[in-house]
Amino acid sequence: MNTWWESVVAKFQMCFITDDRYMLLVKGFGVTIETSLLAVVIGVIIGMIIALFALSNSKALRMIAKIYTDIIRGTPSVTQLMIIYFVIFATVPLPKWIIASIAFGINSGAYVSEIIRGGILSVDKGQTEAGRSLGLSASQTMKDIVIPQAVKNIFPSLCNEFIVLIKETAIVGYVGLMDLQKAGDFIKSATFEAFLPLIATAVIYFTLIKILTILFSRVETNLRKSDIR
């Protein structure tokens, strides 16, 4: 019993304390967070634009939206990441994490656009008619009447997409970025000890997402206050 415990402590020391290896996880966590955050912002902006394209009257814009979502959905995100990093942005002098965020944002945008499109279509047509009949313009009606209701409807799916996106950034190691996942992997290679670093990585991801889930559900409750009878 005593020797088993001692070996666990020794391994823990080797994995996280020696050479300040825990700092790898801390920095990796930072990279994961900054990459995910920027990607979410890019994804939402692209998603809104593509959703408006998909719902527009112009055939050409609808076509662009369809081709975009088709390509993104039809290829693995790691392939997209590598193409964007090694081909499209190969000669662009931007920090690695920003290029990675752009890649994830472009990927997420396709899914977000589908969520937003569905959300806008889910708002009863009578709402638009009521807005327009009062003399509001199409864009005022969209902004004041349709989108706020759509946001409420799509909020859970959007949160889910954000969580998927955070976990998806675990593939940035493919383009040489030291995120949380890669940090765990690095410690594993350096120490020949797989269990502790990988479990630590998992626990950090889990905790992050658990906290976000709790925050999201608070916001959702707030959004639903007009549904309370």
Binding site: Q127, I145, Q149, K152
Partner: peptide, 22 residues
């Protein structure tokens, strides 16, 4: 059209009140 609609109020079968507004 928007300006002319301001002169005409419309009341719908299904009310179409904005549920997210008081």
């Amino acid at each position: 059209i928007d300006l002319m609609r301001q002169k005409m109020g419309m009341v719908f079968q299904h009310f179409n009140l904005f549920p997210h507004k008081t």
